[in-house]
């Protein structure tokens, strides 16, 4: 369950801490997404998370308010439409990138200090992008599969996911119990920032995704 985060580079004087900070004039031409809203679910969720921050956590208004947020972003000239991959981040074209935390952390490790990246979890509008797993009803050994899921859900199994920077579903509980090794925790953003992560149901995901992609061009670019 990774969540939306930001990447920062040495080009910025101040690190933005929350979504609203990104609209400040000092970030003109500096904010990019890691994907295209019409092609990448990650960017659709970026829009949703910004709206979630505005609506104070109200999921029903988040899609609409998110589009409004990006309209303001685009009108202010802060949004650059280039897709921020590792190359553009390294080159400096996209000083602030909005993407899932596991990708941001992987970029930080991949670029290995050239340039130095700072990963920030926004104070509000922290959204989880859940992945689901299942057991096939036709599995030849369904009980073996259940055992496997027992393992995945155990502390040990969950830590394997965390090592790949994907925050596992029991992360908050494990952080509270202090079972996350210190060296691993040091590589991650502070555990508290994940405490209020918002989860969407499949229906909410589909409805918001359809609303955002349908209205993106109209609202944000005013076409």
């Amino acid at each position: 369950m990774p969540q939306l985060l930001q990447v920062r580079q040495q080009y910025l004087k101040n690190t933005p801490q929350d979504w609203e900070d990104l609209l400040k004039p000092e970030y003109k031409g500096k904010v990019a997404m890691a994907g295209d809203v019409l092609k990448s679910n990650q960017s659709v969720m970026t829009v949703f998370a910004s709206g979630l921050s505005r609506s104070g956590g109200d999921k029903t208004k988040a899609a609409e308010m998110g589009l409004q947020f990006w309209k303001e972003m685009n009108d202010a000239g802060n949004f650059i439409p280039v897709i921020a991959d590792q190359g553009k981040i390294a080159q400096g074209e996209t000083p602030i990138v909005l993407e899932w935390d596991y990708l941001a952390l992987a970029n930080r490790d991949g670029l290995a200090g050239n340039p130095e990246l700072e990963i920030v979890v926004p104070k509000t509008g922290v959204l989880a992008g859940p992945y689901a797993g299942g057991i096939s009803a036709y599995a030849p050994h369904p009980y073996a599969a259940r055992l496997w899921w027992e393992f995945v859900m155990s502390d040990e199994g969950q830590l394997i996911y965390l090592k790949g920077y994907a925050h596992p579903i029991r992360f908050n509980d494990m952080a509270a119990r202090g079972v996350i090794p210190a060296d691993l925790a040091a590589k991650l953003p502070p555990a508290e920032s994940y405490a209020n992560a918002v989860f969407l149901t499949v229906d909410e995901l589909q409805a918001s995704s359809a609303y955002i992609t349908e209205n993106w061009r109209k609202v944000v670019y005013g076409e």
């Binding site: 994907g35 809203v37 019409l38 092609k39 990448s40 679910n41 439409p81 280039v82 897709i83 061009r217």
Partner: peptide
Amino acid sequence: GSFINLVPILIGAQMQGD
């Protein structure tokens, strides 16, 4: 990306991505 609304980009959005 899809910032500039071109036909090939619209086609791409319908065929690729999630």
